[in-house]
Amino acid sequence: MSVQQLIDTDRAFNDMAQREGTGKAFIAYSAEDPVMIRPGSMPLLGRSAFVESFSKVTGSALSWEPLKAEIAESQDLGYTFGRYTLREGGEIKGHGVYVSIWKRQSDGSWKFVLDGGGTTPEPVTI
């Protein structure tokens, strides 16, 4: 398993969010027992909390791009780090950075087990 495959998974995750909506993508790419850290809010813990929260999300207001990834020597855990843009009604409302921790599933696919991020005062350029 290569780092590029993990970056490609994160990009596919974003592509699905743009095509089918952020909520549907977060449900599809989350592992069975995910955690989401949300600044200023309680974390989302577990599959049912994800489905309940993200089923209410419509549109594709969030877009992101992975900038770095690493995979553990064991080949079963990895992370992606990147930047995101938040839009409302087509207008940019915020920028930030995120980190997703991914776990390789029994079928060889990657699903995130933990996701979180924070806002930045301006777009991140790396």
Results as ranks from 00 to 15, higher is better:
M1E: 10
V3G: 04
V3N: 08
Q4V: 13
Q4L: 13
Q4F: 14
Q5F: 05
I7Q: 05
I7T: 10
D10E: 14
R11W: 11
F13K: 04
N14D: 12
D15G: 12
M16T: 08
M16L: 11
A17R: 04
A17S: 15
A17G: 07
R19P: 02
R19T: 09
E20V: 05
T22H: 12
F26Y: 13
I27D: 06
A28K: 01
A28S: 09
Y29N: 00
S30C: 05
A31C: 07
E32T: 11
D33P: 01
D33W: 01
D33A: 10
P34Y: 01
P34E: 01
M36A: 07
M36T: 07
I37Y: 00
R38L: 12
G40F: 14
S41L: 11
S41K: 13
M42C: 00
P43S: 08
L44V: 02
L44K: 02
L45Q: 13
G46E: 04
R47L: 06
R47Y: 08
A49C: 03
A49Q: 04
F50C: 05
F50N: 01
E52F: 15
E52L: 06
E52M: 12
E52G: 13
S53C: 03
F54Q: 04
K56P: 05
K56S: 13
T58F: 08
T58S: 14
G59A: 10
G59Y: 11
S60N: 09
S60Q: 02
A61K: 08
L62E: 03
S63G: 13
S63A: 14
W64H: 05
E65W: 01
E65C: 06
P66C: 02
P66G: 03
L67Q: 07
K68D: 03
K68C: 00
A69K: 05
E70Q: 13
E70R: 15
I71Q: 03
S74W: 04
D76E: 07
D76M: 11
L77S: 09
G78T: 14
G78K: 09
Y79Q: 08
T80A: 04
T80Y: 05
T80F: 09
G82Y: 12
R83C: 10
G90M: 03
G90R: 07
G90P: 04
E91N: 11
I92V: 15
K93L: 02
G94Q: 11
H95V: 09
G96D: 02
V97G: 07
V97L: 15
Y98G: 04
Y98K: 01
V99R: 11
V99T: 15
S100T: 10
S100A: 15
I101W: 07
I101Y: 07
W102V: 04
R104K: 15
S106E: 14
S106C: 00
D107G: 09
G108N: 10
S109T: 14
S109W: 07
W110F: 14
W110L: 06
W110C: 03
F112I: 02
V113L: 07
V113S: 02
V113N: 01
V113P: 00
V113K: 01
V113D: 02
G116S: 12
G118E: 08
T119M: 09
P121Y: 09
P121D: 12
E122M: 13
E122F: 14
V124C: 01
V124K: 14
T125E: 06
T125S: 10
